[in-house]
Nucleic acid binder design. Sequence first.
DNA 1: TTGTACGCGTTATCAT
DNA 2: ATGATAACGCGTACAA
Lengths: 325, 325
Amino acid sequence: MATVGRMAGVSQVTVSRALSDPSKVSQETLKKIRDAIDATGFVPNAIAGALASQKSMLVSVLVPSITNITYTSMISPFNAVMRENGYEVLLSETGFDLEDEEKLIAAHLSRRPDAMLLTGIRHTGAARRALLGASIPIVEVWDVTETPIDQCVGFSHSEAGRAVADFVIDSGYERAGSVSAGDERALRRKTAFAERFARRSGTDVAEVNFEAQASLANGRAGLAELIDQQGFKNGVIFCSSDILALGIMVEARARGLSVPEDVAVIGFGDQDFAAHTDPAITTVRVDREALGREAAKAMLKRFSGQTPLQPFTDIGFEIVRRKSC
Amino acid sequence: MATVGRMAGVSQVTVSRALSDPSKVSQETLKKIRDAIDATGFVPNAIAGALASQKSMLVSVLVPSITNITYTSMISPFNAVMRENGYEVLLSETGFDLEDEEKLIAAHLSRRPDAMLLTGIRHTGAARRALLGASIPIVEVWDVTETPIDQCVGFSHSEAGRAVADFVIDSGYERAGSVSAGDERALRRKTAFAERFARRSGTDVAEVNFEAQASLANGRAGLAELIDQQGFKNGVIFCSSDILALGIMVEARARGLSVPEDVAVIGFGDQDFAAHTDPAITTVRVDREALGREAAKAMLKRFSGQTPLQPFTDIGFEIVRRKSC
DNA sequence: TTGTACGCGTTATCAT
DNA sequence: ATGATAACGCGTACAA
């Protein structure tokens, strides 16, 4: 800036002002400064700016996995809104591991983000303390609790599971199975589903759970295990993800079973293919884009000094009836 | 650090040393410092560190889309390798727009990343100049050229297209179509495929191109258009993505057509579902994880002062024959 | 509208 | 093994 200023015949501060608030600088000097910037190829140093202003204009985001559309489809609109407001996003993946999350939180906090977005409401004690100590806005997403660290926006996974149980029972199904994969939240949906279904129908739910992330292959393997090992038939299967549901449909067809007549399926997530498979997949829709935008809004409001009436935002979910169940 | 030092009875500098190179500090003072850090909850300020050392330990990554597995599956291992080496990743999406990429490059450069990863080899002139001016390692991925800005690691999309043409002709197909979606690279594959196929078979390739990103719905619509508008039948369809191929298989089945007998399909990407559909999808595999790791290695080598013999790394591709073609 | 002086929290250099 | 001091490049008073 000093160099640019020298070329333009002004001081360093004036250059700084020209960049941060052009209205505070006269038209002529502004032009001289712009010319000098073009001539030198000057690129402002945001690091120095952050150190001086104590604002990094950086928000950090931690998700379990960046290859999973469930999370990236929230993050993408979140990013967009934040960028419109001048913030950049530092994104890392925790790999579904709370200890790793703790380390990442420390690493991110070192960079003095102006706020932080976390996936889920479970964190280690040390992580929680570090977060509190940072005294910046924290938004936890993809789950809700009445006692977030700061704010949260998401939905109740248990309620979703119960709603699916009610839905399938009201649809007349008397037997049910479940195929789950991935994270702890999928398990919570499954557990709530199984409890409610068993209570209302008097029949236990046959379960298959995978540690690994959801995949079409896991869906196929899940149906195979349900049928071959657990003698499952003539019922509905609740999957923790649409891709598992698709896998079940593929496996069913390969076995000459028809969906939904022989095996009915209900997925989760309403991914973009769910409406276009044959039969189309009945599923639970969560508006992940809206969730990302809401999270960004919550953060921005905090930046402008506002405190929300409630510390949590429940964006809910919706069961979309299609043809697979 | 000054506060921590006071508690431990040493100066600020010693605290800095204890953190950056503990071997330069005696055992006793090290312990005192660590206790003081625990007591105060001190979190080092990486911004100040970056300003002083002129090293941000940050690398920036620009991809067209973070919701697209094609890119995230490269970025994930890239991240992992970089983090093991102490670097954090600043990730943004360009939305397939070169102008937006240019703006993002400027924004990222402001944060003084130690290196930058770009997707693709096409950039605006201004972007190219800014990149050169930053004089940091630049790695362009997902494509190859003999004249990268700095280094590149990827594969030739044209060659891939031609290889697919040769593959299907050698497999005996006499008619071909293509369904493409998404980015410019997909179009290059398609064009090379069509040229080679037409030249060897004497028959033109029926084409459907979507501006939007690949989806199952687009795959279905693509086959519908090929059949209904262009009278396509009894041939093979080259898709720019496995999800399009799956869409074509779904649409074919819905029309009572069997794959590969009535319509054969070859995808691209070898996504994890491709091997598990029924029939399994014949596709072009690119080792995206290896690509990400290679990109990280290339960057790290540059950090340690090494200059590669070649400015480009061609990681190639492989046609995986399964049942859909 | 513009400039001076100082501080942000580290690392690097040179002493001791 | 430890400390004093000077950058690093900007923003924020405050003054002119």
